[in-house]
Every structure is written in C-alpha cells, then in structure tokens.
Amino acid sequence: MTDAPEELASLISQCRRAVVFTGAGISTESGIPDFRSPGGVWSKMKPIYFQDFVSSREQRTEAWNRVFNNPAGWTGAKPNDGHHAVADLVQMGKVSSVITQNVDNLHQASGVADDRVIEVHGNASYARCLQCSKRYELEDLKPRWEAGEDITCVFCTGLVKTAVISFGQAMPEDEMNRAMEEAALSDLFIVLGSSLVVYPAAELPVIAKRTGATVVIVNRDETDHDSYADLVLHTEIGPLMKQTVARVY
C-alpha cells in the first residue's frame, strides 16, 4: 500500500489540470483559528451581519474595532508549509488555480499570483467602498478609525468596509462563476482544510466530480462529501503537502 504523500503525488503528476480548494484548515497551522470549532472565531465573537453594518453606526464602529484589534487573527500571520506547497504546484504548472474560502491573503503571501487565486469569501487585508468599489489599504484608514470617524469613501461618500464577504452579503458573482468554471474544467480537484458545509462554495467539488474529475479531500475531520471522494486523508496539511510536492514528477 502506498503512503499518502506518494499516492497524492502520483495523482498530481498524472493530471492535466488540477485545482486546489482551500478552507480554514490550511491556515490553522499558521495560528489562525477556524470559525466553528471550540475556541474558533465565532465562539469568541458574534458575526456582524451585512445589513447591520450598513444600517448601524454602532455596528460599523464595532466592525472597524475588530479590523484593527484583529481578534480573529486574519492579518499578520505567515504562510505555512501547506501554502508554500500549493504555491510550488502552481509554479510547476500542475495547479491552474487556487479557490479559497479564506480571507487571510496567505496564498498570495506564499507566492501565488493574484490572478491565480479566486477568493469566494473576499479578503481581510484591504477594504472597498460598497458603492463605487474603490480599494483602500487598511493602514491608510487607520488614522480615520483612531479619530473615531464613520469611514466613508472620499470619492463618492459610500460606506467603506473590509473586502470580506459578511453574513447576509451577496457572494461575489464573478469569482463564483470563475470558481465553478475552474471546477468543471479540472481533472483533479484537491480540497485542503474545508469542512464543506458552507454553500455555495461547498458545491464546487460536486461540480468537479460530476464533470469527471478525481476528487481528493484532506481535512482533519470527516466531511459530508467524503463518501464520493476518490481519496480522503485525515491528516495535517502542511507536512502532507510538503512531502507530496517533493514526490511530484
């Protein structure tokens, strides 16, 4: 019986077009807590719904306090071996795109080009105007937060919010369409650290399977999708992927 890194490396080596789909589990090894586990983000603080952010100055103040105090740990962390292994596979031409539910920017920080990362839940490392989509860097907004401002766009006066997709906020249509297209075009779809419970993103491995892809799920715990996956590995992502990349030919 082959070991897990060898088996996964064999699938990657033989595929034509692999897609990697990542969830919170790949970033826990960088010290970022996941959302739903005991001690996770939502056990420490309640989510702020999009409609509450838009309608309540108090909720916007709380949201910006969380951004700059960083209780979720989304910013400032460093990529781990799992992120670097995925970046290596992209650079080797084995992985065509990285679809991620994470908002921590760690795939880009590990060296994956922006145009290869599809962020279906947004990005916590910068902000955008909700009206005109003007991008703002967080460091440029920090003095306005420190001054107690209700942060609005200097161009159109629309509300400015981090680029994270909040509960109740519409999913980014272009990114989801691209993610579904990538899933359908793949012949190998590798899930790394997603519980596969949040839809519509959790539908992506199903799309890949239906269009003929081999599906691999690497996650600490079982998922509802394990039954149709071709390979399921309950193990740490970083060590597995580092060893896997070393075996890819």
Rank of each mutant, 00 (worst) to 15 (best):
F21N: 01
T100D: 11
F167I: 00
W74C: 15
K94W: 02
V19H: 03
E6G: 13
I151V: 04
H107G: 08
A109E: 15
Y126Q: 00
T2G: 00
P33I: 03
A72T: 10
Q59P: 06
E6K: 15
T22S: 10
H84E: 14
E139V: 13
E182I: 03
G39Y: 04
G193L: 05
R178A: 12
H83K: 13
R135N: 07
E149D: 14
E175H: 13
D140K: 07
M1Y: 12
Y249S: 13
N105M: 06
G25M: 12
V164A: 04
I165F: 01
V215K: 11
N69L: 10
E137D: 11
H225V: 04
E119Q: 12
P143E: 12
T211R: 15
D3I: 06
S10F: 02
D3Q: 09
T2V: 11
Q243L: 08
E7G: 00
L240D: 01
R66P: 13
G111Y: 12
V19N: 11
D226I: 02
V215E: 06
R116P: 01
G158C: 00
E6Y: 12
M1T: 14
T211M: 08
G23W: 05
A201Y: 10
E29F: 02
L233R: 03
F35R: 13
T235D: 13
T244V: 01
E149S: 06
V206P: 03
V95N: 08
V248Y: 03
G31F: 09
V95I: 07
T152M: 02
G82L: 13
A213W: 11
K44E: 12
Y126S: 04
E29W: 03
L192S: 01
I32K: 11
D150H: 05
D3L: 02
A213N: 10
L188P: 14
P47W: 01
P38N: 04
P5I: 02
Y228F: 14
Q101N: 04
T61D: 08
S27M: 11
F189E: 03
K242P: 06
S125G: 07
N80G: 09
T75C: 15
E62S: 08
M176C: 04
K209V: 04
L188M: 08
S97Q: 14
E139D: 14
C156K: 09
Q169F: 11
K209P: 05
L240H: 07
L159E: 03
P205Y: 02
T22V: 10
R36N: 00
F189L: 02
S43L: 03
R116I: 08
G111M: 09
D88K: 15
G31R: 11
V86D: 08
V245C: 07
T244Y: 00
A170N: 06
I12M: 09
A127P: 02
E137H: 12
M92E: 08
D174H: 06
F35T: 00
A9K: 07
D52R: 01
L8D: 07
V218I: 09
D140W: 07
K44V: 09
P172G: 09
N80H: 10
N177H: 07
Q59R: 15
N65Q: 15
D230A: 00
C156P: 05
D88V: 10
W145P: 05
